[in-house]
Nucleic acid binder design. Structure first.
Length: 631
RNA sequence: GCCGGCGUGGCUCAAUGGCAGAGCAACUGAUUUGUAAUCAGUAGGUUGCUGGUUCGACUCCGGCCGCCGGCACCA
């Protein structure tokens, strides 16, 4: 039999299994190979090698890592099976940085204090080098094997026969495979956390206990990963927000962030930047009320569909709701005057402070809050302006995200089952959005059927320190709301026509975006965003404090955010404070500087001391601010 | 909302049934400082709230609130 190996044709005996193939082709690494791959499919080492392009999977490969973790989830399940014989197993897949298994422990309560015992049992089983044996059964046979497990019993009939199983000693599990040859390949693992997870992700179902864990090829790699997890915590925006006094949260208003003076600087700078970009793009800024009457929310449909998430109140026997979205208000402003097709696109921007009663368990720092500011805009266009407008918006997104050095991916959500409007409108819009994604040069995915009932949408996802992704920007097409509000424009023929509305946000929630930025910069903001841009440090406050005050006044007048630290402390101490506060520029002012009207600056994260005339420093920092450069 | 964990001075953490403590920060004084922590002193807590068990509760138990990790949610 001939196979292609490393681009060359090689001869292997017919019916050879993976173990023997690696022995023949790559004898040095034969003990490391976890599996072999022919074409796109991965096989266990004891399976017969079919014809095609052959390669081997090693622990260092992405596929190898995934396999190890998948096999490790079976190992963990076997250990749990030994310690908790009544435990029933749901699903246990590999995930990006490890694996989990959903387990029904019945009446038994499990806490992370039980982890060491499970790990110990896993280690014992690992030493026994129990082989993973693949079996293929009919549906009836599989149901017989799992007759006591309601979860597998539910799952088996949904699969196509033959049903593959993997048996390791006294434990058997339903599984597509492939797996590492035996449990001794898994030595460096750790159980990480415990969580409740609904069976099949449906909150109507029973909640199982999910155990998250991870497995690495070597002890060093595992250690390294655990260190990464620790380091990520140091960049957590909640921690940095507290340390740097950017924002706070109070028990008096869960999910309702307070912006402290330093955080407010960032928020204001972001809004200023937003205007700087949008006004020349033809956006007009509006402001609509925070609270509007029930009748309005009935027209928009929110009263019926979104009431559980709205804060409502009764005034003079009349129901009001605090806005969870800005669209109805924006449409009222649109309807305030008559519009011709010549007015379109009409771009109405608004920093709208909305409130939504999110589930208590969903709240998370600035990422998920109950009150937040959307950098919203509602754009009213004719149906044939969709393409052009979407492209314009995407170029704004690209421009703005790149200023922050943020990478993102796009998700296109298409027509759901319960859509409204013409199917043709949907097809055309989806095509336009998909093309826009392709031209953007960014990674994009399609979420089939996940669009809103009123139109397809593009979501822009940014990643946080912990590797979680958060929706920030979005572009949504909407044919519903303009219709419900009876919005129209006069077309070329002098007839009334219904506009299409685009909802779009770049930051999404300014609060969430700030959270992402805090983590992205590790709290060390570029000069233009830094709450304090310059800290002045007179060498001796007594001798040089006067010059310090002079420089302070000059920089203040130039609009630079400056602080003077003339505390009665050594220079080293005050410099350290400036560094810990992550201030971009620390300026040392001593005898030399005083005499020559100069400053000696040191940039955050660098050790160089550079002395320049004061005027020159002002010019260089202003340039950095103007260009939104880091320094 | 659900599962599990957690809640101690402004911050980070200790004390596990027996007198609530440390470091940092704050304040006072000395020192007058040249690139990541000068020294000494002072003050600061009804241990999230609430009910119970106990001679005695930060510690054990119940309820509530909040936070954290997930799940669900995010038209």
């Amino acid at each position: 039999m001939k196979v292609i190996y490393l681009g060359k044709e090689v001869e292997l005996e017919d019916g050879i299994i993976g173990f023997n193939a690696v022995k023949a082709l790559d004898p040095e690494r034969r003990k490391e190979a976890l599996a072999f791959k022919v074409g796109e499919r991965i096989y266990d080492m004891n399976q017969v090698v079919p014809e095609g392009e052959l390669s081997f999977v090693f622990p260092s490969d992405k596929e190898g890592f995934e396999m190890m973790n998948h096999s490790c989830s079976h190992l963990m399940a076997q250990a749990i099976h030994h310690l908790y014989p009544h435990a029933q197993f749901g699903f246990g897949p590999a995930i990006e940085e490890g694996f989990y298994y959903d387990v029904d422990f019945g009446e038994e309560k499990i806490t992370d204090a039980d982890f060491p015992a499970i790990e110990a049992e896993m280690r014992k089983l690992s030493k026994e080098a129990i082989p993973y044996k693949r079996k293929e059964l009919s549906i009836e046979e599989a149901l017989e094997v799992f007759k006591d497990n309601p979860y597998k019993t539910e799952h088996v009939p949904e699969l196509e026969a033959p049903i593959s199983m993997y048996e390791q000693g006294d434990f058997i599990d339903l599984c597509r495979g492939p797996h590492v040859p035996n449990t001794s390949y898994l030595k460096h693992f750790k159980l990480l956390s415990l969580a409740g997870a609904y069976w099949r992700g449906d909150s109507k179902n029973k909640q199982l206990t999910r155990i998250y864990a991870t497995c690495y090829p070597t002890e060093e790699a595992l250690k390294e990963h655990l260190e990464v997890l620790e380091k990520r915590k140091a960049n957590d925006h909640r921690r940095l927000g507290k340390e740097l006094e950017l924002f706070m949260l109070s028990d008096y208003g869960p999910g309702l962030p307070f912006f402290l003076p330093k955080g407010m600087v960032i928020k204001n700078e972001l809004m200023a930047y937003w205007r700087e970009v949008h006004i020349p793009e033809g956006y007009k800024e509006i402001e609509t009320p925070t609270m509007l009457s029930r009748e309005l929310w009935e027209i928009s449909g929110h009263w019926e569909h979104y009431k559980d998430n709205m804060y409502t109140t009764k005034v003079d026997e009349k129901d009001f709701a605090i806005k969870p979205m800005n669209c109805p208000g924006a449409l009222l402003t649109y309807k305030n005057s008559l519009h011709s097709y010549k007015d379109l696109p009409l771009r109405l921007g608004e920093f709208g402070h909305v409130h939504r009663h999110e589930a208590s368990g969903a709240l998370n720092g600035l990422f998920r809050v109950r009150g937040f500011t959307q950098d919203d805009a509602h754009i009213l266009i004719t149906p044939d302006q969709i393409e052009d407008e979407v492209k314009r918006i995407m170029s704004i997104f690209d421009r703005m995200y790149s200023v922050f050095g943020l990478s993102y991916y796009i998700v296109l959500s298409t027509r759901p089952d319960d859509y409204i409007g013409e199917k043709e409108f949907w097809d055309r819009s989806e095509k336009i959005l998909a093309e826009a994604c392709e031209h953007s040069g960014h990674e994009y995915r399609i979420n089939e059927g996940d669009g809103a009932f009123y139109g397809p949408k593009l979501d822009f996802k940014l990643r946080d320190t912990m590797g979680r992704t958060w929706q920030c920007g979005t572009i949504q097409l909407d044919v519903n709301l303009p219709h419900r509000f009876g919005a129209y424009y006069i077309d070329e023929k002098g007839e009334k026509a219904e506009p299409v509305m685009l909802h779009r946000v770049v930051f999404g929630s300014v609060e969430r975006f700030i959270g992402i930025l805090i983590e992205n910069y590790g709290g060390a903001f570029p000069t233009w965003l830094a709450p304090v841009q310059v800290r002045l440090l007179p060498v001796s406050p007594e001798a040089h404090g006067e010059y310090g005050k002079e420089v302070y006044d000059i920089l203040m007048k130039e609009g630079i955010r400056v602080e003077l630290d003339d505390a009665n402390e050594k220079l080293g101490y005050r410099l350290r404070n400036a560094v810990v506060s992550k201030i971009p520029y620390s300026l040392v002012l001593g005898e030399k500087e005083k005499e020559t009207r100069s400053v000696t600056y040191r940039i955050y994260g660098q050790k160089d001391q550079i002395t320049v005339p004061l005027d020159e420093f002002i010019a260089l920092i202003k340039k950095a601010i103007k260009e939104k450069a880091r320094f």
